[in-house]
Design a protein around this nucleic acid. Structure first.
Lengths: 339, 339
DNA sequence: CTGAAAGCGCTTACAG
DNA sequence: CTGAAAGCGCTTACAG
């Protein structure tokens, strides 16, 4: 049996109160007592029960995280920085990998509630009514990271997806492309579905280019879907000379599809992705991408949540909008009138 | 304030004992009482405190996981299946992403101890004395997944890395290659460092091929290191015609390096990886790889750990060796005497 | 079948 | 500066 505070007290010849005091770094303990207690702790290999502590302190130092898919390069990276930042602040993560399973998300939300996590980070925006209500009834601080659901009341840490998407499209146009394809996300997603599509559409319109629905497809952000949708786009009589995919994974799928058709990126088709995940450097040609500041996003997410947890009453929490950044690598090329 | 069991009891006009009984699905509660309690729970939105429960039950349903790097394609995938299997068994994960930081690992191990996690999964094998002692003193069931440290006492869920590596090398030889390069792991790692190297070496020797140290480098399993080491290997007067990298990430780095040198995979150099991560299908040419049964490995890991936690006394736990499987894709080619 | 009471391992007023 | 005691929110013998 692991030793408990009582054992330490007995061993040191003091009260449990005193042991608790030195454990929590309180002053008002005479040095010699403090020493005796410390020695007892060492000798017994005592480690205080976080469970018992949580119960009385009503604070678990736990953060629940809901992420769509930890095998995605974007989410694994942001999760990594979230974990690092949390750990540095002595918080631990409990992560729920939903994989499109609403049931699982509901179950985890219940678990988060039972576990009495101190805060919740959500990284998707497909909230049905049930989840929306549950999360609001929880009485636990929560925020969204990298997405912003329709509700204005929820706080998010995000980039301006509309502007980022607009910028990508303008970039392609400035390279001379006029036939620009689009592999979008789920249009039920406001942030990564609708906003990114609207940015694309408005940039085309603002430049006097037509919206060609045959050049436009919507996927699920994953590599496979990028591949499949690119195939459809390539089936056009006159396919686009550039394609913008709203996730790096889909962009890579699109690149692969082009390769599998015996065509070349960027010579035959330029490709640009979105996210700035490590995949961009792992493929050839290296993928140009609209980068989200992933590191910063993870840090700010945790810091904001911790501030919400501390509950500064004179602070009201609003969205944090981070800067996006287009990084041009080797998958985009100026259109020279060919082919 | 969230309602507590006492509130439910009052609301339903019964004792907390009775509430607890219906909560835990005990028989011996009259139907009408059961109904009243259930209604009270609903009306109050009551959710039992897992913290309080854990304290009395001495069971947290928490599993601590130590993983080298969650952004690696292999680890994120196995973590995903571990999470899934754990969740299905009503266990939750607390993951520590060490990123080579021994301090962080030590800190997390302390956290696991304080949290009173029910079990621990470790996915690396760089155990220094301190960590080795700590983990054994913890009195918490633990096992290793995908690696096996030197100590025979520790139980592991793994493949036979030596045999897998031997098979890869024989495969390359059977394709006609005689100059076979090797990008290994960390030789302090028994499983993924030493064993994989030995398999490579013995296969060459058994086939009467010499060990050429200029064809051999050791990296850190990551893409960048594969790229850098491949560069060194390519610097040979007569470079190898095939290279075996002991992780898919390094293999992709090697492929990229070859591409960046204006050479072609597999025409100029064949490349084969190790792990069978999703990266193999995300790159072009698609990467041939010695696949670990990642899904099964994750499941078996959790199942074995849960069995250890339940502590069946007539069961003694030993290593579980899973089957490896060479999957040939497009990055390997028979050597035809050229160039 | 039901409930009063002790106990899980801590922290923290409160009193000294 | 130090300690006895109550309390955090549950479960479970024990008695009825």
């Amino acid at each position: 049996m692991a030793p408990k505070i009582k054992d330490v007290a007995k061993h040191a010849g003091v009260s449990v109160t005193t042991v608790s005091r030195v454990l929590n770094g309180e002053k008002y303990v005479k040095d010699d007592l403090k020493e005796r207690v410390k020695r007892a702790i060492d000798e017994l290999g005592y480690s205080p029960s976080h469970i018992a502590r949580s119960l009385v302190l009503k604070k678990t130092n736990l953060i629940g995280v809901i992420v769509p898919d930890i095998t995605s390069s974007f989410y694994s990276t942001i999760l990594s920085t979230i974990e690092r930042t949390a750990s540095r602040n002595d918080y631990n993560l409990m992560v729920c990998n939903i994989l499109e399973e609403t049931d699982k998300e509901l179950k985890y939300l219940q678990v988060f509630k039972q576990m009495r996590v101190d805060g919740i980070i959500i990284m998707h925006e497909k909230l049905n009514e049930e989840i929306r209500e549950l999360i609001q009834s929880l009485d636990i601080p929560f925020l969204f990271s990298s997405v912003k659901p329709a509700d204005q009341e929820f706080v998010s840490v995000i980039i301006d997806d509309y502007a980022a998407s607009y910028d990508v499209t303008r970039h392609l146009i400035s390279l001379g492309h006029t036939r620009i394809g689009f592999i979008g996300g789920d249009m039920r997603d406001v942030t990564s579905g609708q906003n990114r599509y609207l940015g694309y559409r408005d940039a085309l319109t603002d430049c006097g280019l037509a919206i060609v629905s045959d050049y436009i497809r919507f996927g699920d952000y994953k590599t496979q879907s990028g591949h499949a949708l690119m195939k459809e786009i390539l089936a056009n009589e006159t396919p686009p000379t550039a394609v913008f995919a709203v996730s790096d994974d889909m962009a890579v799928g699109a690149m692969n599809c082009i390769h599998d058709h015996g065509l070349k990126v960027p010579d035959d088709v330029s490709i640009i992705g979105f996210d700035g995940s490590q995949l961009t450097e792992q493929v050839r040609p290296r993928l140009s991408s609209m980068e989200q500041p992933i590191l910063e996003m993870g840090e700010v997410t945790v810091e904001t949540l911790l501030a919400m947890i501390k509950g500064d009453p004179n602070r009201t929490f609003t969205d944090v909008i981070l800067q996006h950044n287009l990084v041009d690598r080797d998958s985009c090329k100026a259109y020279n009138g060919q082919p």
